[in-house]
Amino acid sequence: MSDRRTRPGRLESISRRFWFEHESGHRLYPYRSVERNSGRWAFRVAPPGTGANKTINQTLLDDEEEVYRHVFSKGWSVRLCDAEGKRDGLYNKDGYSIVRTSES
C-alpha cells in the first residue's frame, strides 16, 4: 500500500481535462482518490442505474482520456470536486444539478 505522505492530496490530483458547472456556480473537476482496500490511487466512475455512490458499483480508472470517454460517450457518472477540494460528489453530465459542462 502506498505511503500516505507520498500521495498527492485531492487538490494536487484534480484533472483539468473537463469540468461540470454545478447549479451553485462552482466548477467541478474529476480527481483521483484512494481506494481503501487496495490503496489504488485512481479516478472513480460508475455506470448509470447502478446505485453509483456505492463503492462496489464504481470502476477505478487511471487514464484521464478513458475517464472522459466513459463520462461523455457512455454517460457514466464521475467523482468530482471544486477547485478548493470542498464540494465533492458523484455527478453525471446530465444530472439535475449540472447546468453545463466544458463540452456543452
Rank of each mutant, 00 (worst) to 15 (best):
W41K: 00
S97G: 01
N92H: 09
W41V: 07
F20A: 03
N53K: 08
I56F: 06
A52P: 00
V67G: 08
S33K: 08
V67I: 06
S77E: 13
S38V: 00
K93N: 02
G85R: 02
E12N: 10
A83F: 01
G95A: 09
R32H: 06
L80Q: 06
S15L: 04
K54Q: 13
G85I: 04
P30T: 07
V45E: 00
T101S: 13
K54M: 10
H70L: 12
G49M: 05
N53P: 12
S15H: 07
D88Y: 02
H26L: 10
S2P: 15
N37P: 06
V99Q: 06
A46H: 03
G49H: 01
P48T: 02
R7N: 09
A46S: 15
N37S: 13
G25C: 11
S73D: 15
R10M: 11
R79Q: 09
R87Q: 10
G25R: 03
S104L: 12
R10F: 06
E64K: 04
P30D: 13
T59G: 01
G9D: 15
L28M: 12
E64F: 00
G51Y: 07
R16L: 10
S104W: 14
Q58Y: 09
T50V: 14
E35Q: 13
Q58N: 09
A46G: 11
L60A: 12
G51R: 04
R44L: 05
P48Q: 06
W41N: 07
I56E: 15
R87P: 00
T55K: 06
P8H: 09
P8G: 11
W76Y: 15
R4W: 02
Y29S: 07
Y91Q: 03
H70P: 01
R16Y: 10
S77Q: 07
S77D: 14
V34E: 15
K54C: 08
N53A: 13
P8Y: 07
H22C: 08
I98A: 05
V45G: 01
R87V: 14
S2L: 13
H26R: 13
E103M: 03
G85L: 03
D63R: 04
R79A: 09
S77N: 09
R69D: 15
G9R: 11
G39K: 06
E65F: 00
F20N: 03
A83C: 11
E21L: 12
N53R: 06
E66C: 13
A42G: 11
G25L: 08
L60G: 09
T50F: 01
Q58K: 09
S104C: 13
S15E: 05
S97P: 08
R32F: 06
E12H: 04
N37Y: 08
R4H: 04
D82K: 06
K93D: 02
M1T: 11
S77F: 03
Y96H: 06
S97N: 08
R44I: 00
